[in-house]
């Protein structure tokens, strides 16, 4: 299977696929909008953040520090995509 490219669309697709198969199994993909609050609404709890971080590190070969996993970088799909882009731009 071809992995999507590491541009914004590719990152978005990978993040969505992870969320829909991890904490949102059974959800209609259309409900997962790019600005949906994930952390502040309780959709993702602390263990979900650990799994998300592990997924992003493995998928994009990046290293994420503990202080970078706060709400500012992980509360929405948009925020996660921007964060991964900034890590890749290094």
């Amino acid at each position: 299977m071809n992995e999507p490219a590491d541009d914004a669309d590719g990152i978005r697709a990978a993040v969505r696929e992870h969320l829909l198969s991890d904490v949102l199994v059974g959800e209609d993909p259309e409900n997962l909008t790019d600005d949906l609050p994930l952390r502040t609404s309780g959709v993702i709890d602390s263990m979900g953040v650990i799994r998300l971080t592990g997924f992003l590190e493995a998928r994009f070969s990046i290293r994420i520090e503990a202080h970078e996993t706060g709400v500012e970088n992980t509360d929405t799909v948009d925020a996660i995509v921007s964060f991964v882009e900034s890590k890749l731009a290094g």
Binding site: E27, N31, L32, L36, S41, D45
Partner: peptide, 18 residues
Amino acid sequence: SIIGLRTHCGKVLPGYMI
């Protein structure tokens, strides 16, 4: 929606019970 269910749980239960 699953999102709605999780959001409800986040309001009434500690995170480890969701």
